[in-house]
């Protein structure tokens, strides 16, 4: 396997909190150029943490204790903090979860998009402005000039998420981490935003790591799926196969927990408690083995 083919390789990633509790357990996944991989699981499964680790923004209390993250073949762990920051900024971008807090409330929209282009990438101000206007247009914002001159509080949540999508795509990244980008939005807006991300992804050929808890979203946007439970990969498969033939009982339960598209009136069926208990027992066993193996 030549790693250079992949936009992103996460290899056996383990993350711990200071008391030795593992939040991620030997997680591996990869992203090919132009591919969308969904990272799905319930809250607390560690799916957002993978995105944060990839982008180098883990909270300082969390430590990567083993494993590697390779971005376009470069091992991020082997770089100095400054070089790592530069490598991530060069390759990747983030579409955050909550558009209400992800824009600086006291700065106008325009500079928030153009700043990284000018100050990190060294573009001229007019180039950056042209690029920002172009992208605002492509995320279907009607009056891009006016939005550039607005403060965040003057825009609706959906508009702000469009702005953030435009900002993410503006520097032409090869990798985008989308961290539950629709969760904080109204249902009607969710669909538009989802469609928009897919549209821009196809046009630009950017790889996307799409973090979500919603199997419905998974079906709509991704080609591959990684299913996580308690920081452990349950299943890694093409999206089509996951829905037609789920390989893991937990995946099956997750799909069953999603309202069916054919029959939206069918009620939710939550993941059965017995299954959760079984899985936790297995993981506890793994953990005790892991602890025993350590010096």
């Amino acid at each position: 396997m030549t790693k250079h083919r992949h936009t992103l390789d996460v290899v056996d990633l383990t993350i711990e909190i200071p008391n030795g509790m593992r939040l991620l357990r030997d997680v591996s996944l990869n992203l090919e150029p132009g591919e969308v991989r969904a990272l799905v699981g319930e809250s607390g499964a560690g799916k957002s943490m993978i995105g944060k680790a990839v982008l180098g923004i883990l909270p300082s209390a969390l430590k990567i204790t083993s494993g590697e993250i390779l971005m376009e073949g470069h091992n991020l762990g082997s770089l100095s903090p400054r070089a790592r920051r530069a490598a991530v900024a060069e390759t990747a971008a983030l579409i955050p979860q909550d558009p209400l807090t992800a824009l600086n409330p006291v700065r106008k929209i325009g500079p928030q998009i153009t700043d990284p282009l000018v100050r990190i990438r060294g573009w001229s101000a007019s180039e950056a402005r042209k690029r920002a206007l172009d992208l605002l247009d492509r995320v279907h914002i009607r009056a891009p000039e006016r939005v550039m001159n607005s403060y965040p509080h003057e825009l609706s949540g959906g508009m702000r998420q469009r702005v953030l999508i435009a900002a993410a795509f503006a520097p032409s990244p090869r990798l985008i981490v989308a961290d539950e980008p629709t969760t904080a939005l109204d249902v009607t807006v969710q669909k538009q935003i989802l469609r928009l991300i897919r549209e821009l992804q196809r046009e630009t050929g950017t790889s996307v790591l799409f973090v979500t808890h919603d199997m419905g979203v998974v079906a709509k946007i991704s080609q591959k799926v990684t299913v996580l439970f308690a920081g452990k990969v349950m299943e890694d498969a093409p999206t089509r196969d996951i829905f037609t033939d789920p390989g893991h009982p937990y995946t099956r339960a997750l799909i069953a927990a999603t309202p069916s598209h054919a029959d939206p009136n069918r009620s939710f069926s939550p993941v059965p408690d017995s299954l959760i208990a079984d899985l936790h027992r297995q993981i506890a066993q793994d953990d005790s083995l892991y602890r025993g193996a350590r010096p």
């Binding site: 920051r85 991530v88 990747a92 983030l94 979860q97 807090t101 990284p116 953030l164």
Partner: peptide, 14 residues
């Protein structure tokens, strides 16, 4: 600890 500062870090700002 606000999201907009996290975003700035991802964008490469020191």
């Amino acid at each position: 600890v606000q999201d907009y500062t996290t975003l700035a870090r991802v964008r490469g700002f020191s």
